[in-house]
Amino acid sequence: MTVLLIAIGAALGAPLRYLTDRAVQARHSSVFPWGTLTVNVSGSLLLGALAGVPTSPAVAALVGTGFCGALTTWSTLSYETLRLARSGTRRHALANVLVSVVAGLGAASLGYVLGRALTG
């Protein structure tokens, strides 16, 4: 049952990641990967909120592992950072790593605090 919940969450998260990435990136003429940053930070916020509220293992599997796992993408962050560095935009590559890590951790922390506040 848990594997099915993860698959359902992933089936929703992966297309949302793609569509959000394309929609956000289409609004920017920069080589900076704004779409990936958006999905990673929003997924971190959601996962932080999920960690801050008492949930069942089923909800954690569906939303945390499945949905957030498919919505966020460390591999794409890594690939895009490497692509930026190889194309000569090393400052963009460094900014991508720094902003992604700081904003992701900040969003997860904020999500956790908000989740605790809603249930506390």
Results as ranks from 00 to 15, higher is better:
residue 3 V to P: 02
residue 119 T to E: 15
residue 52 G to T: 08
residue 24 V to N: 08
residue 20 T to H: 02
residue 6 I to H: 09
residue 94 L to K: 00
residue 82 L to I: 15
residue 76 T to W: 02
residue 77 L to G: 00
residue 78 S to P: 00
residue 36 T to P: 02
residue 84 L to K: 06
residue 10 A to W: 07
residue 75 S to W: 02
residue 8 I to A: 15
residue 1 M to G: 14
residue 1 M to F: 09
residue 62 L to E: 15
residue 114 L to G: 13
residue 90 R to M: 10
residue 40 N to A: 10
residue 102 V to R: 03
residue 66 G to L: 14
residue 38 T to K: 00
residue 22 R to T: 11
residue 18 Y to D: 01
residue 57 P to Y: 12
residue 17 R to D: 09
residue 111 G to S: 04
residue 118 L to D: 02
residue 36 T to D: 04
residue 56 S to G: 13
residue 24 V to A: 08
residue 109 S to E: 11
residue 6 I to K: 09
residue 59 V to A: 15
residue 9 G to I: 10
residue 120 G to K: 06
residue 102 V to N: 03
residue 14 A to L: 06
residue 41 V to E: 00
residue 65 T to G: 12
residue 101 V to Q: 08
residue 33 P to I: 10
residue 17 R to W: 08
residue 94 L to Q: 03
residue 96 N to D: 07
residue 82 L to E: 09
residue 16 L to W: 06
residue 16 L to S: 08
residue 31 V to E: 15
residue 62 L to H: 14
residue 11 A to S: 15
residue 80 E to M: 01
residue 25 Q to W: 02
residue 109 S to N: 04
residue 70 A to M: 04
residue 55 T to S: 13
residue 96 N to I: 01
residue 105 L to F: 15
residue 70 A to T: 01
residue 14 A to S: 11
residue 4 L to Q: 12
residue 7 A to R: 06
residue 55 T to M: 04
residue 117 A to V: 13
residue 113 V to H: 06
residue 84 L to I: 03
residue 92 H to V: 04
residue 120 G to C: 11
residue 27 R to D: 07
residue 53 V to F: 12
residue 10 A to T: 10
residue 97 V to N: 03
residue 116 R to G: 02
residue 56 S to F: 08
residue 64 G to I: 12
residue 13 G to A: 07
residue 110 L to S: 01
residue 89 T to N: 14
residue 46 L to R: 03
residue 20 T to Q: 00
residue 76 T to D: 05
residue 52 G to N: 06
residue 99 V to G: 03
residue 30 S to A: 11
residue 93 A to P: 08
residue 28 H to D: 05
residue 20 T to W: 00
residue 26 A to E: 06
residue 76 T to E: 05
residue 76 T to H: 03
residue 102 V to T: 13
residue 33 P to A: 08
residue 61 A to Q: 09
